[in-house]
């Protein structure tokens, strides 16, 4: 029996090996790695893996960790159902409805 895989992202089943391979293929930013491998795009929205992925990237690129740019994280931070959203009575954005671009 071979050794089990090391999972970086459990939601989308992205292994450590896949992430490293994608880096070798030329994906060197967290944002493009996310789009290529799917890391951080699952149900948990990156709560279980984005920090780890960013740390790995800093090691792979041999750069200071503070230079790793985080991916876009848009609200909400967890999946909702349409029913939950439909029940939400959103307050009027005071006076300026329709002026949004």
């Amino acid at each position: 029996m071979s050794k089990p895989k090391v999972f970086l992202c459990r939601c989308e089943d992205v292994t450590l090996q896949e992430f490293q391979d994608a880096y070798v293929e030329g994906f060197t930013e967290l944002e493009s790695l996310k789009r290529y491998t799917g890391v951080g795009t699952g149900f948990c929205q990156g709560k279980s893996c984005l920090s780890e992925a960013a740390e790995l990237l800093a090691t792979l690129r041999d750069i200071p960790p503070a230079e790793v740019r985080l991916t876009n994280i848009r609200p909400p931070a967890e999946p909702l159902t349409f029913a939950q959203l439909a029940a939400l009575d959103v307050p009027d954005p005071a006076g300026d409805s329709g002026s949004d671009s």
Binding site: F7, R10, G42, C44, K47
Partner: peptide, 13 residues
């Protein structure tokens, strides 16, 4: 792969 109770707080898959 089989998966089981992990985060216990509604975050994970």
């Amino acid at each position: 792969r089989p998966r089981g109770l992990t985060c216990a707080r509604g975050h994970c898959t």
